[in-house]
Design a protein around this nucleic acid. Structure first.
Lengths: 221, 221
DNA sequence: ACCTGAACACCGTTCAAGT
DNA sequence: ACCTGAACACCGTTCAAGT
């Protein structure tokens, strides 16, 4: 009986995993606009069309890249312990991941049922149960919590994407100055908080937001 | 003394306002991918390059379109009354606006200090003050509330963008069936809530999320 | 089965030339 | 000052042809 001969794969053979890895490297190094099929093909030393054998299209590629990063984050999140502490850890994990890979911000909001989102929902859902939320409210509470976390993370991560360190406070000072020039009659609140803009910490503010929702969830226990 | 003669503008002269209006029509009718400078130029019966006289680039165009819609929403939001009720009205206004103009979802998350976001922050900030939040917490509370609202609205609006009405429950049934096929050991929560997916109401769930944050804000009063 | 790379049908943006 | 539209430098995606 003839056994089907399986030709040995070259060590550097293309695969979805290798493509996704290379895509993430490009995205992290030079941003979303740098990820083109041509740049990816060059980096992988192949033709542009070859990528389409492993990946449906660019949307699929971005979703796979996002899922790869999120899978890593969720694997690291410690379970057990206090559910509220676990949710905070998970939220900070999402924040730091989006901060490190800003291109995920838009991706996570664009497709509510991509697998990466499902992973997060599962992680949060388990903690919501552990928190003792009534069963009928669990779906609502978990999606609300997740969507708030993703929303907060995307916004604050987008803010973090702006100039860093030394340039950062100068940049924020310019924005604050711009806010101060607004019509006081129309923008009293924004003018009032402009002073706090320069030295606020996005990560801290993010965590304050998460705590706010956690406080609200106590209500539906 | 010679008076400068100002040549009469043609009634249909180009202006940023007219360009933004046409852009919104294209975006609403055929989605984000349909908005090209060529399509816009054709609709405005002009050359593609003419648009650049009034608009810096595509990013500027999207920001201006978003600001135009949000300005309309904020103008309609009733002030006075109960601050919590006002926040709910404002949140639902944002939800309905993103639902009606789904292309705004990504836009609002991408640039945290665009003018449209400032308008929303101002509206929310005023209510947060009226709610009696301590002054040192107002900035945190207002940005958290706004970012949650934008995050929730973007997610739920993205979900709403999917098939409507008759097709909708069929579509959700397919997703729920897909969830049920997941490994029970790895996805117990998602499997458990899959049953609730088919007949949930995104708008209602959004409002539940907003109420959750409002509940949390009571804490920092 | 998997890869190659030229070709197709587009884009956003620029700019010399017009009025 | 404002508009025209061809031209430039790209894209994502397809597909006949190769191995």
């Amino acid at each position: 009986m003839a056994t089907r001969i399986r030709t040995e794969r070259r060590a550097d053979a293309l695969s979805k995993a290798r493509i996704v890895e290379a895509a993430i490297e490009i995205l992290d190094a030079d941003g979303e606009s740098a990820l083109t099929f041509r740049a990816l093909a060059t980096r992988l030393a192949t033709g542009a069309g070859a990528i389409y054998w492993h990946v449906a299209d660019k949307h699929d590629l971005l979703a796979a890249a996002t899922d790869h990063v999120i899978a890593g984050v969720m694997a690291k999140v410690a379970t057990g312990s206090d559910p509220r502490e676990a949710i905070r850890t998970l939220a900070l994990g999402a924040f730091d991941a989006i901060d490190a890979h800003p291109w995920m911000g838009g991706q996570l909001s664009s497709d509510p049922w991509q697998y990466a989102v499902l992973r997060i929902l599962e992680g949060i859902g388990g903690q919501v149960q552990a928190l003792g939320v009534r069963e009928g409210e669990q779906f609502n509470a978990a999606t609300a919590l997740m969507n708030c976390i993703l929303g907060l993370a995307a916004q604050y991560a987008a803010a973090e994407r702006l100039p860093r360190d030394a340039d950062r406070s100068a940049y924020l000072a310019v924005i604050a100055a711009h806010w101060m020039q607004l019509d006081p009659a129309q923008h009293p609140f924004v003018r009032q908080v402009a002073a706090q803009l320069a030295d606020h910490d996005d990560r801290e503010q993010f965590l304050a937001g998460v705590n706010l929702i956690l406080g609200g969830i106590e209500t539906v226990r």
